[in-house]
Amino acid sequence: MTVRTIQILFAIGWIAASPFVSAVSSEETITGLQVIEKVYNRPAGKDMQADLTMTLINSRGDQRVRKIKQFTKDFGEMEKKIMFFVSPADVRNTSFMNWSYDKEGKNDDQWIYLPALKKVKRISSDSKSDYFMGSDFTYDDLGDRHPAEDSHALLQEETVNGEDCYVVESIPKEEEYMYSRTVTWIIKDKWIGLKKAFYDEDEELLKILTVKNYEKIKGYWIILQTEMHNVQKDHRTKMELENVIIDSGIPDNKFTERMMRRGLK
């Protein structure tokens, strides 16, 4: 993964790149798999840092806010990410580091630094169906799902909010996966997933992800605001990226135990 990880913190940061668009033989014959592969393989910046605000909103409208500072860097066949929790106060100075690999089947490596224990602990990255910090995003929603893990079909083309979109249905090959299928609306000329619907194991609509705002920064389309709505529980999670800096030359040693312990100093 590259900068994509942070973009995928929005659960599908589908950012397209024009060179890949032109590589398609013909838009008329494009398949669902091709759409997803090109999005997965899109070029992105070498590194990225941003402030992430996550707002959890329950059915009564009560809000809980989490703030995170995060850094991501592409190291070729692996991508490293480090996140520093800024608020609420009881998780401040907690940090989380993730190394993910392009190699299919290789699990991510993850560590967490807990200031209350003053220890960096290795944790298993196997629980991808767990929800991230009580939000409506699972760890797998936030990760970089390989196209080969699903079967993709181009259902139709639609116009959403004035944007021409491909509508792609993805069905997981793994029988026990938490979703029975997903349907994604991808903007044709920008290759951004504008909307995504998640269906549960009983084929009932579970969640809808909607992109609220995106901008082109340093030549890359960056999704800045998104919302995941769990329609069954009427619970929402808004995610907002601010102070996005791309290709600033984040040093390699930012992604080490040393920095997990030091925090944002």
């Binding site: 224990l117 003053k118 390699d252 080490t256 135990e257």
Partner: peptide, 23 residues
Amino acid sequence: LDFVEIRIGITALKADYYLGNHT
């Protein structure tokens, strides 16, 4: 007690030398 309260702080000089993820 919470573990952070069980540990008594001690006056010390600590030096860490880092080489990538080796310390």
